[in-house]
Design a protein around this nucleic acid. Sequence first.
DNA 1: AGTTTGATTCTCT
DNA 2: GAGAATCAAACTA
Length: 212
Amino acid sequence: MDREFFNQDGINVAKQILGKYLIRKYEGKTIVTKIVETESYMGITDKGAHVYGDKKTERTKPLYLEGGHIYVYLIYGMYYCLNVSANNEGIPECVLIRAVEPITNLDEIAFNRFKKEYAQLTNYQKKNITNGPGKLCMALNINKTLNSKSILGDELYISDFYYEGDNKIYSDSNFEIENGKRINIDYAQEAKDYLWRFFIKNNKHVSVNKNK
DNA sequence: AGTTTGATTCTCT
DNA sequence: GAGAATCAAACTA
């Protein structure tokens, strides 16, 4: 995906990165996953957003950058959440990536999550390996060192394709998008009912399978 | 300087 | 389905 793609508004970006590959490279390792669930946070008028009321603080600075910047924050003292800024500079919209599906290097993902090889995981662990915003950050070794960096770089990026050896494998868009209310923003008054969560219908790796 | 609060996950029950 | 874990940042003053 290019800069222009992320300069769209947050709802379009959230829908359009579904089915695309989220690719992480570090220490010579490469992990490919597919994005299956996202949420839009629509800037200073969105009561669910960190920047509601134009709250530009040290934490939220990356959101004010041009679309395509990484915003990583710590939640509940323990878990990281990954966002990508959307829209133009000064318009702090973003997309929270809530769940991905593992595609390659399952052993590395399994080790990051459970300190075991993939084949040794229980079915329960396999099912719950990347189906949540904190889980996928653990799985992909995502932390605050990536904060405010570009999602167009080579450490963490989103693409239409990946290489498996010499094979160039393209994402397919043969799926239906479901939407629903965003998760765990009960404090957001009327904004908690906005249908700004998007996910691939019937995908096994979506975090919450309801759409009310 | 002290208090409150989570865009969550895991472990029970 | 409920409760605990755990802390940076925001908020109160």
